[in-house]
Design a protein around this nucleic acid. Structure first.
Lengths: 93, 93
DNA sequence: TTTGAATAAGAATTCAAA
DNA sequence: TTTGAATTCTTATTCAAA
């Protein structure tokens, strides 16, 4: 469960600008992850996300290393979906 | 004045682990910079410092790019001292 | 182990002022 | 422009619980 959520978080912060944990929380909930800010804070720590300053002078979350956009995002999405499938099919394995 | 303080901040966060702005504030005051947390917050933003997770799992401030240690720190110190000298000699120029 | 509720701790911003 | 005081906002942690 946590793994899937982590993948989703990485996906989210690459898709759009997430300024606060509250904002991330709303997005997660929109995606069906019903957690609280405390969990988001822990997730951010575990994922080693950082709050950086955008070119417009606003803070937002990002992974430290800039990864080639597109490819990694797609991989993450794929990964998240895979885990979802495995979990969904889990009882058949 | 701000420039000197900025240089000092960069020096400080490379010398030791600074976990919070309050801690940085104390160090700055120890170095003779009598400012408040509001100013430190702004300085951090202007310097684009980020809060990263150390290997021990603790948060601390750092510049984003890891720069070769030693050289840059010395340069910064030198720079800070230079500015100090210029300011001290300012009325003679 | 992972989580939430509540709280504490930390950081950003506002508003005034010099 | 830069700053501080006060405030608000944001985030980390504690403590209990499942």
């Amino acid at each position: 469960m946590k793994t899937r959520r982590h993948a989703k978080i990485l996906e989210l912060i690459q898709e759009r600008d997430i300024d606060t944990q509250e904002e991330l929380l709303r997005c997660l909930r929109g995606a069906g992850y019903d957690v609280t800010q405390a969990t988001v804070s822990r997730d951010i720590k575990e994922l080693r996300l950082i709050k950086t300053l955008s070119s417009e002078g606003r803070y937002h979350y990002s992974t430290g290393q800039e990864n080639a956009p597109g490819v990694s995002t797609k991989f993450l999405t794929l990964f998240a979906d895979s885990v979802l499938s495995i979990e969904a099919a889990g009882h058949l394995l």
